[in-house]
Design a protein around this nucleic acid. Structure first.
Lengths: 142, 142
DNA sequence: TATTGTTATACTCTATAACTATA
DNA sequence: TATAGTTATAGAGTATAACAATA
């Protein structure tokens, strides 16, 4: 008898991520957010960005794509862009109170969502999963 | 001292899947394919579809989205659509020789890609990863 | 000239609502 | 009326190339 071939890791990864990200995006949308907006807010609240290009790298998108999202977020009153006095080529991004409030709402969504993802797994399994996912992501960078 | 908070599972999953799917899509594009085209070809070659709606479900997209991809694939000469004689509401999809050749080329890409994904992991780790990813995907369906 | 970010443009994937063809 | 699939339309996210502002 032949063993059934294992389902490819890439297909399993894509399926798990697709279903997860759809549900997560729906939950964020109910609060007026989206995945890219959440990732940008998360990166901004973590701080440490000198330039938008660094922010784009952290979010995993290109410069014009970041500009696109920043435009939407600025129109929504979540942030302000000002040129830095010492080097006016650099735009400094500041979250408004509205932006910070949005961050906290979306963080609530993200925490609730992650709790749901973690349910049914032991801590040891979650640690193993984190380790495996980090190694997978790191592999791609090369 | 506080322990550093664990990075959310959802974020790690999204990162791993994003980097993986980009590289995979690039590799498929070099052969004239794409991820949705590959998934449709894979489902068609597995067979067992009576209706397009079942095919759409298997690929994880809606009917009109499937129609969109089938249009492109038919224009590219990969398949033909004909009405079933016994129930002319149903369209039967048949892969052409070109379509089957594309399937085999893209399967080669997928197998090479998955081999790369698997490298650096032990068989026990891969089994664990498959199990964890399947449980994650199953959870979302509920 | 080099750097930072934006504008202009376009493409892919996806979806919902309305429609046609068939039963 | 109900079902299978398509057409019409739209929207989100992404990207590349060309550009403007600044250094």
């Amino acid at each position: 008898m032949m063993e059934p071939a294992h389902t490819p890791i890439g297909l399993l990864l894509a399926r798990a991520a697709k279903t997860a990200s759809r549900a997560f995006d729906d939950a964020l949308a109910a609060e007026g957010g989206s995945i890219p907006v959440w990732l940008v807010l998360l990166a901004l609240m973590r701080g440490g960005h000198r330039m938008q290009s660094e922010l784009a790298d952290e979010v995993g998108i290109q410069g014009p794509t970041l500009t696109h999202h920043l435009n939407g977020m600025e129109n929504a009153g979540l942030l302000l862009r000002q040129r830095a006095p010492d080097n006016r080529r650099i735009h400094r991004i500041e979250l408004t109170d509205t932006g910070r409030a949005m961050f906290h709402r979306l963080r609530g969504v993200a925490m609730a969502y992650d709790a749901r993802l973690r349910s049914g797994f032991t801590e040891a399994e979650l640690d193993m999963l984190r380790n495996l996912l980090e190694r997978l992501a790191a592999k791609q960078a090369s």
